[in-house]
Amino acid sequence: MSAIARLLRAREAGILVMLVLFVAVVSLIQPRFFSAETLRIVLLAVPLILVAAMGQMMVLVARHVDLSIGSILGFSAIAAGMIFRDYPELPLYVGFAVGVLSGAALGFVNGLVVTIFKLPSIIVTLGTLSLYRGLLFILSGSKQIDPNDIPEPLIRMAQTSPIDIPWIVIIAYAVAFATWLFLTYTQVGRQIYAIGSNPSAAPLRGIRVMPVTILVFTLSGALAGLAGLIYAARFGYVNPGITGVGFEFTVIAAVVIGGVSINGGVGSVLGTVLGVLLLGSVQVALPILGVSGFWQNAIYGGIILIALVIDRTVRQGGLRGLLARGGA
């Protein structure tokens, strides 16, 4: 009992076991899955989710949730794409700056509304999910950014780099590493955990909840914006009505699998990375196993619920504890 419980409590180990088991089972059914080619596909599929998941993780740790990241991703990708299209003479980093900063600005607005008016973030971001999508249609004039208008160097970032691993993969893990540094070694990073574990006690400990919360939403927005550029690099075009739609659910699923608690205060970069890898593997495994894409959403939904139940079970000291308390 205690050994299993300890293993389960070490969330990262648990997720790693799940990941290994998943790969093993799929490889048994379809040996082709266990190949360098599949690894390459998973590595390429993951960065988009990983970058946004780092932001969402911090939001969840602070006991909030951000449903608007799909629309932010779309908005930033369109904004950057319009720079690429209308000012092709500008260097690439200008587009990156526009994408990340516009994402940060939208995230900042989320944080501002949530903290000033003390509103539940889920409802606020449900509203901005629609609002930002509307704004991005207005901004783009409902026009798609065609592959022609995406600069060649950006597309190559999804294909190669000086060390042969595509740039977007490098960027994604760099972002994860930076997030880990931020959460572990800075005071603000640790305050995010404190706020999430006990929001009412945080001010008593001298934490300024409002600016930290706004910062978390701003970071989430900025990272969704960066994900927008990764989207443009990987898929080669940006469509106002398609780009980022439903993306929030994929990311929330990945983060929740990664052991981040929706009750705040709990969550690690390593766990999230493993969660994203697990989800990415599922995404890649489905077509290789020949499972209809129609199953994808049902699986994501099921995974979120299972992860929630596991999270609950672990925190209450196993199933017995859960049922004992539940019976009260």
Binding site: T38, L44, G293
Partner: peptide, 15 residues
């Protein structure tokens, strides 16, 4: 869907 079409094509090449 761009994402699903991409993974499906990758699976074609792998399979």
């Amino acid at each position: 869907d761009p994402q699903k079409s991409t993974t499906e094509t990758e699976a074609l090449l792998a399979n």
